[in-house]
Protein backbone atom coordinates (compact mmCIF):
# COMPACT_ATOMS: atom_id res chain seq x y z
CA UNK A 1 0.00 0.00 0.00
CA UNK A 2 2.82 2.38 0.87
CA UNK A 3 4.46 1.80 -2.49
CA UNK A 4 1.16 2.44 -4.24
CA UNK A 5 0.72 5.63 -2.25
CA UNK A 6 4.22 6.78 -3.20
CA UNK A 7 3.60 5.97 -6.86
CA UNK A 8 0.30 7.85 -6.72
CA UNK A 9 2.06 10.77 -5.10
CA UNK A 10 4.77 10.80 -7.77
CA UNK A 11 2.18 10.67 -10.56
CA UNK A 12 0.28 13.47 -8.88
CA UNK A 13 3.41 15.61 -8.70
CA UNK A 14 4.27 14.83 -12.30
CA UNK A 15 0.79 15.86 -13.45
CA UNK A 16 0.54 18.91 -11.22
CA UNK A 17 0.03 22.37 -12.52
CA UNK A 18 3.56 23.49 -11.77
CA UNK A 19 6.07 23.78 -14.58
CA UNK A 20 8.76 21.09 -14.90
CA UNK A 21 11.22 23.73 -13.66
CA UNK A 22 9.19 24.29 -10.47
CA UNK A 23 8.97 20.55 -9.82
CA UNK A 24 12.72 20.14 -10.47
CA UNK A 25 13.59 23.10 -8.23
CA UNK A 26 11.33 21.74 -5.47
CA UNK A 27 12.95 18.33 -5.78
CA UNK A 28 16.46 19.86 -5.68
CA UNK A 29 15.64 21.91 -2.58
CA UNK A 30 14.16 18.78 -1.02
CA UNK A 31 17.37 16.93 -1.80
CA UNK A 32 19.32 19.56 0.17
CA UNK A 33 16.92 19.34 3.09
CA UNK A 34 17.01 15.55 3.09
CA UNK A 35 20.76 15.20 2.89
CA UNK A 36 21.95 18.04 5.15
CA UNK A 37 21.34 17.73 8.93
CA UNK A 38 18.44 19.96 9.95
CA UNK A 39 20.19 21.95 12.68
CA UNK A 40 22.31 24.09 10.40
CA UNK A 41 21.90 27.67 9.27
CA UNK A 42 21.87 26.85 5.56
CA UNK A 43 19.21 24.20 6.07
CA UNK A 44 17.07 26.85 7.73
CA UNK A 45 17.69 29.28 4.83
CA UNK A 46 16.69 26.61 2.31
CA UNK A 47 13.41 26.13 4.18
CA UNK A 48 12.75 29.87 3.86
CA UNK A 49 13.53 29.70 0.15
CA UNK A 50 11.16 26.77 -0.26
CA UNK A 51 8.41 28.69 1.51
CA UNK A 52 9.07 31.93 -0.32
CA UNK A 53 9.61 30.74 -3.86
CA UNK A 54 7.01 29.18 -6.03
CA UNK A 55 8.47 25.68 -6.16
CA UNK A 56 6.49 22.46 -6.11
CA UNK A 57 6.02 21.67 -2.42
CA UNK A 58 5.02 18.08 -3.05
CA UNK A 59 8.33 17.55 -4.84
CA UNK A 60 10.12 19.07 -1.85
CA UNK A 61 8.48 16.65 0.57
CA UNK A 62 9.01 13.67 -1.73
CA UNK A 63 12.71 14.53 -2.13
CA UNK A 64 13.12 14.98 1.63
CA UNK A 65 11.70 11.54 2.31
CA UNK A 66 13.88 9.91 -0.36
CA UNK A 67 17.12 11.74 0.43
CA UNK A 68 16.77 11.50 4.22
CA UNK A 69 16.94 7.71 3.83
CA UNK A 70 19.89 8.07 1.47
CA UNK A 71 21.61 10.39 3.98
CA UNK A 72 21.26 7.76 6.69
CA UNK A 73 22.77 5.08 4.48
CA UNK A 74 25.55 7.31 3.13
CA UNK A 75 26.40 8.86 6.53
CA UNK A 76 29.80 7.08 6.83
CA UNK A 77 30.67 8.28 3.33
CA UNK A 78 29.70 11.88 4.18
CA UNK A 79 31.78 11.65 7.37
CA UNK A 80 34.86 10.47 5.45
CA UNK A 81 34.34 12.95 2.63
CA UNK A 82 33.85 15.82 5.10
CA UNK A 83 36.91 14.78 7.13
CA UNK A 84 39.00 14.69 3.96
CA UNK A 85 37.89 18.18 2.93
CA UNK A 86 38.21 19.69 6.41
CA UNK A 87 41.34 17.98 7.69
CA UNK A 88 43.28 16.23 4.95
CA UNK A 89 43.26 19.05 2.38
CA UNK A 90 46.00 21.12 4.00
CA UNK A 91 45.75 24.02 1.55
CA UNK A 92 42.18 24.68 2.73
CA UNK A 93 43.08 24.72 6.42
CA UNK A 94 43.75 28.46 6.55
CA UNK A 95 40.46 29.16 4.81
CA UNK A 96 38.45 26.98 7.22
CA UNK A 97 40.29 28.47 10.21
CA UNK A 98 39.41 32.01 9.15
CA UNK A 99 35.85 31.01 8.40
CA UNK A 100 35.60 29.43 11.86
CA UNK A 101 36.46 32.78 13.45
CA UNK A 102 33.91 34.81 11.49
CA UNK A 103 30.44 35.75 12.71
CA UNK A 104 27.26 33.90 11.68
CA UNK A 105 29.00 31.43 9.32
CA UNK A 106 29.85 29.00 12.17
CA UNK A 107 26.09 28.51 12.63
CA UNK A 108 26.15 26.56 9.35
CA UNK A 109 28.22 23.99 11.29
CA UNK A 110 30.45 23.68 8.24
CA UNK A 111 33.17 22.34 10.60
CA UNK A 112 31.18 19.14 11.13
CA UNK A 113 32.30 16.29 8.90
CA UNK A 114 28.78 15.07 8.08
CA UNK A 115 27.47 18.59 7.43
CA UNK A 116 30.41 19.38 5.14
CA UNK A 117 30.23 16.00 3.37
CA UNK A 118 26.49 16.11 2.80
CA UNK A 119 26.49 19.81 1.77
CA UNK A 120 29.24 19.25 -0.80
CA UNK A 121 27.48 16.12 -2.07
CA UNK A 122 24.26 18.15 -2.44
CA UNK A 123 26.07 20.92 -4.31
CA UNK A 124 27.65 18.40 -6.68
CA UNK A 125 24.27 16.78 -7.30
CA UNK A 126 22.36 20.06 -7.82
CA UNK A 127 22.80 20.43 -11.57
CA UNK A 128 22.30 16.77 -12.52
CA UNK A 129 19.29 16.39 -10.22
CA UNK A 130 17.67 19.62 -11.37
CA UNK A 131 18.22 18.93 -15.08
CA UNK A 132 17.37 15.25 -14.74
CA UNK A 133 14.09 15.85 -12.93
CA UNK A 134 13.13 18.65 -15.30
CA UNK A 135 13.79 16.43 -18.34
CA UNK A 136 11.91 13.55 -16.77
CA UNK A 137 8.82 15.63 -15.89
CA UNK A 138 8.73 17.20 -19.34
CA UNK A 139 9.04 13.87 -21.12
CA UNK A 140 6.53 12.21 -18.81
CA UNK A 141 3.93 14.88 -19.48
CA UNK A 142 4.48 14.85 -23.23
CA UNK A 143 4.97 11.18 -23.93
CA UNK A 144 4.07 8.92 -21.04
CA UNK A 145 1.12 10.61 -19.37
CA UNK A 146 -1.27 10.47 -22.43
CA UNK A 147 -0.60 6.74 -22.64
CA UNK A 148 -1.14 6.25 -18.91
CA UNK A 149 -4.45 8.08 -19.12
CA UNK A 150 -5.57 5.70 -21.88
CA UNK A 151 -4.83 2.64 -19.74
CA UNK A 152 -7.91 0.50 -19.08
CA UNK A 153 -7.34 0.55 -15.33
CA UNK A 154 -7.22 4.36 -15.22
CA UNK A 155 -10.33 4.62 -17.37
CA UNK A 156 -12.10 2.18 -15.11
CA UNK A 157 -11.10 4.17 -12.01
CA UNK A 158 -12.21 7.40 -13.65
CA UNK A 159 -15.56 5.92 -14.60
CA UNK A 160 -16.18 4.67 -11.07
CA UNK A 161 -18.45 6.45 -8.63
CA UNK A 162 -15.63 6.80 -6.12
CA UNK A 163 -13.60 8.87 -8.58
CA UNK A 164 -16.66 11.03 -9.19
CA UNK A 165 -17.06 11.67 -5.47
CA UNK A 166 -13.28 12.38 -5.23
CA UNK A 167 -13.49 14.97 -8.02
CA UNK A 168 -16.43 16.69 -6.35
CA UNK A 169 -14.65 16.73 -3.03
CA UNK A 170 -11.58 18.15 -4.75
CA UNK A 171 -13.62 20.97 -6.29
CA UNK A 172 -15.22 21.72 -2.92
CA UNK A 173 -11.87 21.77 -1.16
CA UNK A 174 -10.52 24.23 -3.72
CA UNK A 175 -13.36 26.71 -3.08
Amino acid sequence: MLILQVIAKIIKILRSQGTPGQVAAGFTFGMYLGLIPWNTLHSFIIWILVILFNVNFGAVLLAISIFASIAYIFDPFFHSFGYWVLVDLDFLRGFWTNLYQTSIIPFTRFYNTVVMGSTLASVLLTVPVYLGVKWFVKNYREKVDPKVQKLGVIKMIKASKIYDIYQKAKVLSEL
Binding site: P37, A71, Y72, D75, P76, F78, H79, S80, G82, Y83, L86, V87, R93, W96, T97, N98, L99, Y100, Q101, R109, Y111, N112, T113, V114, V115, G117
Partner: peptide
Amino acid sequence: VKPEKEKRPPRLKGQDIHFVK
Protein backbone atom coordinates in the same frame (compact mmCIF):
# COMPACT_ATOMS: atom_id res chain seq x y z
CA VAL B 1 45.02 21.14 14.86
CA LYS B 2 44.63 17.83 13.06
CA PRO B 3 42.28 15.68 15.14
CA GLU B 4 42.28 11.96 14.60
CA LYS B 5 39.35 10.71 12.58
CA GLU B 6 36.62 9.13 14.69
CA LYS B 7 36.01 5.67 13.33
CA ARG B 8 32.30 5.44 13.86
CA PRO B 9 30.65 8.61 15.13
CA PRO B 10 26.90 8.25 15.84
CA ARG B 11 24.79 8.29 12.68
CA LEU B 12 24.14 11.78 11.28
CA LYS B 13 26.21 13.35 14.08
CA GLY B 14 29.63 13.37 12.43
CA GLN B 15 32.73 14.83 14.02
CA ASP B 16 33.32 18.50 14.83
CA ILE B 17 36.69 19.85 13.73
CA HIS B 18 37.65 22.84 15.85
CA PHE B 19 39.86 25.08 13.75
CA VAL B 20 42.08 26.49 16.42
CA LYS B 21 43.98 29.70 15.89
